[in-house]
Amino acid sequence: MTTASKNAQQGASHRYRAMRNFIQSTDDTVPGKLEVTKEGIVHDMMAPVGPHELTTAHIRKRLERVIPEELLAHTGEPDVEDESEGIMRRPDLMVIAWADMDVPGSFDPRTLVAAVEVVSRSNPDNDWVTKVRDYALIGIPVYAVFDPRTGTGAVLTDIHPTPDGPRYATRKDFVYGEDVTIADWTISSEGLPLYGS
């Protein structure tokens, strides 16, 4: 490694730690979620109640009926973090083993079985564009997106290398009402709420 590339890497790591520290210092004082992406801090002003939270609750309950006992459909903290990539995210729902939750600090994204996001009305590109890129980059093997704006979604799998870094190779789109397969388990998307006009 050249001195210039080592200095650039140290600068990026310092920048990431500064953003992470800022987010942690503002926790519970800023509405919504603050996360770190490759571009910097993103602020998702999701509504704390309503169709977003109801969708997440439905998906969690449906997944917990079909996943094995050693796994949990988790909807809380902490974040998932890959400091080497400069990414810290908090999925709406994570399928993770109970044993992999017993860690200090953030979850290792590579221990997640799947991440599920419910598209925010205020910032849909965060779920449909930057998280698609970031979740593949940090090694989350399955990423499911439910979009209450349109009553559609997609499940992305099969991370593979590309010139721009790891990306999902397979995308299976669905319409609300259809069965959705997330990793090894299939749930219904029937009756999920939509955002009103």
Rank of each mutant, 00 (worst) to 15 (best):
S120V: 04
D147L: 11
P109Q: 12
A154P: 02
M1D: 13
R62L: 07
T75M: 14
I67L: 10
S84V: 00
L71V: 02
T130D: 13
R62S: 04
S25L: 03
A99Q: 06
P148K: 09
S122M: 06
V36K: 01
D82G: 02
T2S: 15
F146I: 11
V36N: 01
D179S: 15
L54V: 06
A57C: 11
E77T: 15
V145N: 09
G40L: 01
T162Q: 15
M46G: 03
L34Y: 02
V175H: 12
P48I: 06
I23D: 00
T170I: 14
I67C: 09
D125W: 08
L93Q: 08
S106W: 00
F146E: 11
T56P: 01
G32A: 10
L71E: 08
E178Y: 00
Q9N: 02
L194A: 10
F107M: 06
N21E: 13
Y195W: 04
I159Q: 08
Y143I: 01
V119F: 07
G196P: 08
H43C: 10
A4V: 08
T26I: 10
P163L: 09
A4M: 10
E39Q: 13
L34Q: 05
V118F: 15
G165R: 14
K61D: 14
G50T: 04
R62F: 05
G151W: 12
P163G: 05
T181C: 08
G191S: 14
H58L: 12
I138V: 14
R89M: 09
M45L: 09
R60Y: 05
V180W: 03
R121Y: 11
S106Q: 02
A73Q: 09
L54F: 07
W185C: 12
P166M: 05
H74K: 12
V66P: 00
A115H: 08
D92T: 00
G105A: 04
T75Y: 10
I23T: 01
R17M: 15
M19L: 11
G50I: 05
G139S: 04
A8Y: 06
V145M: 12
G105C: 05
Q10F: 03
F174Q: 05
L54H: 03
W128S: 03
E64Q: 12
P68I: 04
D173P: 00
P141K: 02
V119M: 08
G11D: 14
K131N: 13
N21F: 01
T157I: 02
N21L: 06
E53L: 08
H74Y: 13
P91Y: 09
E81G: 05
S84M: 04
P161C: 13
K172G: 01
L156H: 15
D184C: 10
T181Y: 07
F174A: 04
G105K: 03
R121H: 13
Y143M: 03
A154N: 09
A97R: 14
L112S: 12
A12I: 00
L54T: 07
A12H: 01
P109N: 10
W98C: 05
A99W: 00
A169P: 06
F107L: 15
D102I: 13
T170K: 11
P161A: 14
D134F: 05
R60L: 10
R167M: 06
E53H: 09
M94T: 06
W185H: 15
G153K: 10
P161S: 11
K172C: 04
